[in-house]
């Protein structure tokens, strides 16, 4: 059908772009992760050679073995997962009531409230995280305030701790939690809630047996939207974390920019991808379902 043939011209441009610039790079990252570090530009060796008709395999899993040997990498992964998971939970606990409150407001105010939620994320992420340095420092604003009203005598150490990371992630990613949950709650038929009340359910009961189950897909979308990127977050641990705050995004960055060890950085990325594969896959299903596209 000529219809189909014409469709090809709509499908091909975005498809090719994403294949070349999003999918293909993973082949390269996999390749380099098998290579050896070299003092050259680019700083890695070949993983095979083809000299005088003879094929020779030069790649190895040494980089991955190295990740296992030095506990700093394993700890980085585990710590990232832990920090991201706890932050996601906190973001959910703050974000869900906010989304619910907005969804129950009169329609005329809703869009304005949503704007208020999104607005901060339109200013630079970097600057927003930077703002917390001034607040959390030992001689920062929060400590100043607490000391001046006499709650504490000595400044609390907040910057360069896990606490700062939690604050940073929740602060930076809160809108991503609120928006999908809101989108879900706002579509929830209020008559269902009235029906439940009419049948004698108390508010808590209505919430746990109607509202919450019907907003699960929004909750999942929001949680993955916060969890997955924050596992690999770099800016937050770099600015708010301390030298001993291990997060895998930061470790990768240092491996790449400070140690200039591209193969090990690639190996870190490959392992991170492998860890995130399952959540990303689940997220993709949820998101496509939410968008009403079967995948």
């Amino acid at each position: 059908m000529s219809f189909l043939r014409r469709r090809i011209w709509v499908i091909l441009p975005p498809y090719l772009w994403l294949l070349i610039f999003f999918a293909l790079p993973f082949a390269f990252i996999l390749k380099i992760s098998l290579a050896e570090t070299a003092v050259a530009m680019p700083p890695y060796g070949d993983i095979w050679s083809w000299t005088s008709g003879k094929f020779e395999w030069l790649g190895s899993l040494d980089n991955f073995r190295f990740l296992l040997d030095d506990e700093i990498y394993v700890l980085s992964y585990l710590n990232s997962l832990k920090l991201a998971a706890i932050s996601t939970l906190i973001a959910l606990l703050i974000g869900y009531p906010m989304a619910l409150a907005i969804a129950r407001m009169p329609e005329s105010i809703r869009s304005f409230m949503l704007l208020l939620v999104i607005l901060p994320s339109w200013t630079s992420f970097l600057i927003r995280i930077y703002a917390w340095i001034g607040l959390l420092k030992n001689n920062g604003l929060i400590n100043h305030l607490l000391m001046s009203i006499g709650v504490i005598d000595e400044p609390i150490v907040m910057l360069h701790t896990n606490f700062a990371i939690y604050v940073g992630i929740v602060y930076g990613y809160l809108p991503f939690m609120i928006l999908p949950i809101y989108a879900n709650l706002v579509k929830l038929d209020l008559r269902l809630i009235e029906a439940a009340q009419d049948l004698g359910a108390r508010p808590a009961r209505v919430f746990f047996s109607i509202t919450l189950p019907l907003s699960l897909s929004g909750i999942f979308a929001g949680c993955f939207l916060v969890f997955i990127p924050s596992v690999g977050e770099f800016i937050i641990p770099d600015l708010l974390g301390g030298p001993d705050t291990l997060m895998i995004g930061k470790t990768l960055w240092q491996e790449f920019f400070t140690n200039r060890d591209w193969p090990v950085a690639s190996a870190i990325a490959v392992v991170m991808l492998a860890i995130l594969m399952v959540p990303i896959y689940i997220y993709r299903r949820i998101e496509l379902k939410r968008l009403g596209i079967e995948g």
């Binding site: 294949l19 999003f22 999918a23 380099i32 997955i228 990768l252 993709r284």
Partner: peptide
């Protein structure tokens, strides 16, 4: 299926992975 995956995955892909893999490309 691949196409829909390609359009959704970048939403959550950590920046360090996207950045490094594109550089290597």
């Amino acid at each position: 299926t691949i196409f829909s995956g390609l359009t959704v995955a970048p939403l959550v892909m950590p920046d360090v992975i996207t950045g490094l893999s594109l550089l290597l490309l």
